[in-house]
């Protein structure tokens, strides 16, 4: 218990003092998580929509593949992206390895299947009459999709939250492709791993609490945003 109390004290002290290193680590974590979640949703949500609403050959296989990708070990994705971005790899020339963009890329690969699988489940759960009603009222394909999405908005919102959670808490891939470089690619999770390996458990706990506080803030903001979006509808 002593350890946790000490961790809490250190966390408060670091935050209240506005420790520039902790703030920059937290800022990077947030930036990576927001960009990666945004990109993952940009890729995953349309795929999920397609899989969830249209009938095509191999649809079941696609759903199984998506669900399997949810269990992708993060270190495997890390190694995969490392292989792609390493100087000898196919995209080595881009010079992205050990930059925050490399972390974003790995996180997008991890989070996009989550966004896709949860979107597919969300739109599959929508009453089939929603689509039919929109169609019979004369809606074009985009308005039909938009109408279905609006009916599934709570579940879709859940997909975004879960994708964000996966990204902000991820450590394995971020460590491998980011390299945990101070002031450049050190995120809260890689910093926690480093502090633990150095024996500074209190700092590790303090950084962990910062991470939780960050996740809480983002989720509260998302909820407020969602609540406002819903206020117009009775």
């Amino acid at each position: 218990m002593e350890l946790f109390a000490e961790g809490l004290r250190r966390a408060l002290a670091l935050l209240l003092a506005g420790d520039p290193e902790v703030l920059s680590i937290a800022a990077l974590s947030l930036r990576v998580a927001v960009v990666a979640t945004g990109l993952a949703c940009l890729v995953g949500v349309p795929i999920g929509f397609l899989v969830g609403t249209t009938q095509f050959w191999g649809r079941r296989a696609a759903i199984t593949a998506l669900n399997t990708m949810l269990a992708f070990p993060t270190v495997v994705v890390g190694v995969l992206v490392w292989g792609l971005l390493a100087r000898s790899g196919p995209f080595g020339g881009a010079g992205l390895l050990y930059t925050w963009w490399a972390i974003v890329l790995a996180e997008v690969i991890l989070a996009a299947p989550i966004a896709a699988a949860l979107t597919a489940a969300a739109v599959q759960g929508v009453d089939p009459r929603v689509r039919r009603t929109a169609l019979t009222l004369g809606a074009g394909p985009w308005l039909v999709h938009w109408t279905v999405a609006r009916e599934a908005r709570f579940a879709l919102f859940g997909a975004v939250v879960v994708a964000f959670g996966r990204v902000i808490a991820e450590v394995g891939a971020a460590m491998i492709v980011g390299g945990n470089i101070r002031h450049q690619t050190r995120t809260l999770t890689t910093a926690v791993a480093l502090s633990t390996s150095q024996g500074d458990f209190a700092l590790a706990i303090a950084l962990g609490l910062v991470l939780l506080a960050l996740a809480l803030t983002v989720n509260v903001l998302l909820h407020l945003f969602q609540g406002r979006g819903d206020a117009g509808r009775a």
Binding site: R129, G138, E151
Partner: peptide, 30 residues
């Protein structure tokens, strides 16, 4: 579908007001 409209046995109205539901129909048909 611009010429034909179906009213289902258990019709579905969207989660808006009644008037907004009718306005949606006008928007859908432009």
């Amino acid at each position: 579908r611009r010429d034909v409209t179906l009213v289902e046995q258990h019709p579905l109205l969207f989660a808006m007001t009644v008037a907004e539901n009718l306005r949606y129909a006008l928007t859908a048909r432009r």
